[in-house]
């Protein structure tokens, strides 16, 4: 499939959002709010989820499903307080030895006045540093759009999985085309060049696994994903923290010229 079709599928309004995953993959979920510094960002949902006998800290970008909810959640584009809430919950997970699972779905971190004034760059930078040395297993799952630094801010993980039709890109194809060729109409071409599909990114060692999309409401996908997450947690929880951190650093470190 051409990259532009993947982009369209990743952005489709009827595509399941994080909420569906949380409901289908986990046996219970308790949401927590706030970054303890400024406020609570509805673009990022975080809390404790149970998967069988295992508790994990779950952090997800939620785009919303109705027009009203989409607006309330800022279409999944987080402010600094969203990234800081995520970091607070990840540090809490580390304290109690809970693995972290993130669900990534954003067109990007929000570009606005308040976001700049409250340090969007610093907030993401801090997550990148802290996630690299978080002493519990971390799994990031790209479920829709992985928009640049805003997606990476939740994706410094031991493994990055991508849904079959998710995309992960340094810039939107439209943005790329308008900067490079002064023509947003060439977005399809840019989408190809950027190598943003799950297939491309597994090949480039940016992602580890492609999660097939099956069933109208993703029922089969969720069932498969649940057992894959269980296996991942089971495996990674046996690995000593030092070894885990070394492997996580090397995973990113080896992405070389």
């Amino acid at each position: 499939m051409e990259a532009k079709h993947r982009v369209a599928a990743a952005r489709a309004k009827d595509r399941p959002t994080a909420r569906s995953y949380i409901r289908s993959l986990f046996d219970e979920f308790t949401e927590f709010h706030g970054d303890r510094l400024f406020g609570d960002d509805p673009a990022i949902v975080g809390g404790i989820a149970r998967l069988g006998q295992t508790y994990v800290t779950l952090i997800a970008q939620e785009k919303g499903t109705t027009t009203r909810e989409r607006a309330a959640r800022n279409f999944g584009s987080a402010h600094p307080e969203g990234y800081r809430k995520a970091l607070r919950l990840m540090k809490q997970a580390e304290k109690f030895g809970r693995p972290v699972v993130t669900l990534v779905d954003t067109s990007g971190a929000f570009c606005g006045i308040g976001a700049e004034e409250r340090g969007q760059g610093r907030a993401i930078a801090e997550n990148l540093m802290e996630m690299m040395t978080l002493r519990v297993p971390v799994l990031a799952i790209l479920i829709g759009e992985g928009g640049s630094g805003g997606a990476l801010g939740l994706s410094v993980a031991d493994e990055v999985w991508m849904l079959e039709n998710s995309v992960y890109s340094v810039i939107s194809p439209e943005g790329c085309a308008s900067i490079l060729w002064k023509d947003a109409g060439r977005a399809a071409e840019a989408a190809d060049c950027l190598k943003l599909t799950a297939q491309d990114l597994v090949q480039l060692s940016v992602a580890e696994r492609i999660v097939p999309e099956r069933g109208k409401g993703f029922e089969e996908t969720f069932a498969l994903l649940r057992s894959d997450i269980e296996a991942f947690l089971d495996e990674k929880q046996r690995v000593p923290a030092e070894e885990l951190l070394q492997a996580r650093y090397q995973k990113f470190r080896k992405i070389q010229p």
């Binding site: 990148l128 690299m132 040395t133 640049s148 992960y168 340094v170 490079l180 190598k195 990113f252 470190r253």
Partner: peptide, 26 residues
């Protein structure tokens, strides 16, 4: 910022450099 001609490989440098800074800092 990132260099779009290197796509996601460029974005990954943010994580890579942050990891190196963090280990140096620690």
């Amino acid at each position: 910022g990132a260099r779009m001609q290197e796509g996601m490989l460029s974005l990954m440098q943010m994580a890579k450099t942050s990891g190196a800074v963090k280990r140096f800092s620690d």
